[in-house]
Design a protein around this nucleic acid. Structure first.
Lengths: 210, 210
DNA sequence: CACCAATCTGAACGGCGTCAAGATAATCTT
DNA sequence: AAGATTATCTTGACGCCGTTCAGATTGGTG
């Protein structure tokens, strides 16, 4: 009957069918990448994983909880992308811009995942815990603190971090709109476009003048 | 055939049931305000308007087209809010900030409508035409141009406008997250919080230095 | 080996978007 | 004024969705 079509990414196959929680999250990401968020139904995920529509309910309370798990992986991936960008970026002025560019690129390259990440946050009226401890948000704040030489007040530091995060998110949501295609071309590519916008945002105007 | 079911808010009750297109859009907005975007099904809209589930299909190609009409009204309302804010704002430095605050407030006060507006845009990978001609986006650009004394290059002007728009949109999406509640309180209210973030964004850093 | 709890299936419920066929009523033609 | 036409609305159906529940299956434990 069941012909072992499991991905079996890990060696742990604890129970009856295999590590289904894992398999479901992976199936969901596969569907997201190939067919987009609109096609991401619980039944489709179960189908993709080769189980019945009711099976997921033994691992997740409901569809939202499965999406939470997907979003969690998304934030981890974003963390990794920002860490990498920060490592590579030259010190000084444009380190923050590089971080911003990396953020927007992540969103552009994983649009469906990015969407799920924020949809889940919106449902809870809160960004994930993950961000605060040593995650993406914290990296942005550290980069800003570094840049200001550690002299910024806690409140200013927080405001600047929020400002930067909002700018990045806003740009990430706009980047794929057709209207901006001519401007991108005029500037010689997407990276130049992004850097241009971030320069205009001048997220350090206030910190620098202090 | 049908000549673009125009708004015709006037006295025209053209057909059998009344001006159903209008009634449907109004029903949709009512549902949005009271029960949120998740409850906005075509069937619910038809129910609210007192017609059968299939009736809307004589006025809109599908659900998406009905939402487009709702979004269209949303953008018009946003235009109005920004016009009002621009009229009231003091000249000079913080005129742009006032515009930003008005934008974010609109999103906070009409969260479901704001969501529909951007969801429709995303489906088409484009912001609505409406914005370009004499709408909200144009107002932002004009305000920026004014501020820079008309000396900014077309490209810089466009980049600055995009930057400001993205910042506003990003902040609008974040404003309701619980994490920021303590900071809002520390600053003595939401308006102070918003102005604080916008100051840090310093959207004129580049234009001013030129 | 027998039992238990965890895991999965199958069938069902109500709600959804959408469509085709028919009923109804306003408009147009003559 | 009467019939034809056209736009409008209803009824009923289809397939998909999220979710639940009773029952089958199976791995681990005593």
């Amino acid at each position: 009957m069941s012909e072992m079509t499991q991905t079996a990414t890990t060696d742990a196959r604890p129970y009856h069918h295999g590590d289904l929680s894992r398999a479901l999250v992976e199936a969901a990401r596969r569907i997201l990448e190939t067919d987009g968020p609109a096609a991401l139904s619980l039944r489709a995920v179960a189908r993709e994983a080769g189980v019945s529509p009711a099976a997921p309910y033994h691992h997740f309370k409901d569809k939202g909880e499965l999406l939470d798990a997907v979003a969690h992986e998304g934030w981890a991936a974003l963390d990794a992308a920002l860490t990498e960008a920060r490592r590579k970026a030259a010190d000084g002025k444009d380190r923050m811009t590089s971080l911003g560019v990396a953020y927007v690129r992540f969103a552009r390259d994983n649009p469906a995942l990015y969407r799920v990440m924020y949809d889940c946050s919106r449902d809870k009226d809160a960004l994930p815990e993950q961000m605060k401890e040593e995650g993406a948000y914290c990296q942005v704040r550290n980069t800003i603190d570094e840049r200001s030489g550690g002299t910024a007040s806690p409140i200013d530091l927080e405001l600047a971090t929020i400002a930067a995060w909002c700018a990045g998110h806003g740009l990430a949501e706009m980047i794929s709109f057709k209207q901006f295609a001519p401007l991108k071309e005029a500037l010689g590519g997407e990276e130049a476009f992004l850097r241009g916008v971030f320069e205009h945002l001048g997220m350090f105007a206030k910190l620098d003048q202090a």
